[in-house]
Design a protein around this nucleic acid. Structure first.
Lengths: 238, 238
DNA sequence: TGTACATCAGTGAACGCGCGTTCACTGATGTAC
DNA sequence: TGTACATCAGTGAACGCGCGTTCACTGATGTAC
């Protein structure tokens, strides 16, 4: 039998090379950053001629898009897995686990981090296809928040948003977009705090990875741990 | 009299061209980003030959360094000026003014922002000379905090750092480094919160400028305003 | 004030490099009968 | 099972581009006497 699972040798070879090209590209990204990444260098490493890559990726930007999607998905899975591994009833622990998992991945793959959370790659415009994977990370946090809420939970008045403000409207719209049948809605005020926490988390990672802490809070483990705990309080998990 | 203030025509011309080169570079940075910036293009715009630039900047990296220093200084002055313009006794207002001024500059000059707070420019290592200007921004916030404190102000116990932790040690060291004769020390716990607020601020700006808010909290004015107010509370100004 | 020499700015050509992408082609793999 | 044709992968050369940096040079500006 020369075919397994209905795939011809050609199809298998194509799938494998498509993957290998991406993996070699990822390797070069890790070493040289997004703009040290060149199709020619990838082809060279694979023992191919540069024009051959065009059978697999129509352009450099498409290869970059594939890497970006993978990078988001890797961060997303890291967060999701960490949440799943934490005690189901312990929302602050789940929150913290996600934060630490994201940091671990960022530190281990700084160029991938920079690719998705750093300055935009010049001349590259992210296509729609990156939006879904990018959203996995905030969604993971949203799920932690939702699971921690009882349907009727009251909100302290101090946490209310200024009524009628554009912020309240944006948050309400987002809350509606995130609504799932059977699950409690997330109050806009909580959502806003979640977004702030989300920016806080990545702000800290960016400063750590991009060198703003040099000479003060480096290594940043302790600061990070403290901030994550504060954030859990801020979003109302504690 | 052919010389004024002891400068020869040559010296004046040199100073002027040095400035003009930097300004043209800044213009190109604003349009094309840090790696759309090329010595040759700058020279072309100035009607010079590319090799002539080497009389003014010994290499591309030196020109980049000059731009980085200017960018930090511009953000620093914006913050300092905004603080000075706010009511002297109103610490939360001073805090908010600095945050909004920084954001305004970042939004107006996104590529300069990316240059200093985005992913590091590949192949470029920031020299010591950038550290001072970079520090102006956090220092401006520190001054707001310091001015708001009375020498013996007690700290709520809930804000204490875990004693003996690496974080407490780092913060104490920083507090000591920031000490000024005649001014009250900033308690380490406050300093840690200030650092967290600092990362929060720039995390939010990075997300706004680098496109993570697209489709949710964009425009981010309302979110930003709300977050800044929360931060003032977080660092104990309210 | 005038001359002789030193300093400096700017030129133009060149070196050596790497890049993304296109295109006509060869030879291998797959498909239909 | 065997043959004829279609599809596809990979080649190698080429296009056209731009870059940072060096170097020997000319001509203008500055300085010392």
């Amino acid at each position: 039998m020369s075919r397994s699972a209905g795939r011809t040798a050609r199809e298998r070879a194509r799938a494998e090379l498509t993957r290998e090209i991406k993996e070699e590209a990822r390797r070069q990204l890790a070493e040289a950053g997004a703009d040290g990444l060149s199709l020619r260098a990838v082809a060279r490493s694979l023992g191919m001629v540069s024009s051959a890559l065009y059978r697999y990726y129509p352009s450099r930007d498409d290869l970059l898009t594939a890497l970006i999607i993978d990078a988001y998905n890797a961060v997303g899975s890291a967060a999701e897995d960490a949440i799943a591994a934490a005690p189901a009833g312990d929302a602050p622990a789940r929150w913290a686990a996600a934060c630490h998992a994201i940091r671990a991945r960022a530190v281990a793959h700084p160029h991938e981090y920079a690719l998705i959370y750093g300055s935009p790659v010049p001349g590259y415009r992210a296509p729609q296809a990156t939006i879904g994977p990018a959203a996995r990370i905030p969604l993971a946090f949203v799920r932690v928040l939702r699971d921690a809420r009882e349907p009727g939970d009251p909100l302290p008045a101090s946490r209310a948003l200024p009524p009628g403000s554009p912020l309240a409207a944006q948050a309400a719209a987002l809350s509606a977009a995130l609504a799932e049948p059977g699950a409690p809605d997330i109050p806009p005020a909580v959502l806003v705090r979640a977004v702030i926490a989300w920016t806080q988390l990545f702000g800290m990672l960016s400063f750590e990875l991009f060198g703003q802490f040099v000479g003060s809070f480096e290594p940043a483990d302790a600061l990070f741990g403290y901030a994550v705990a504060q954030l859990a309080t801020f979003v109302g998990l504690r």
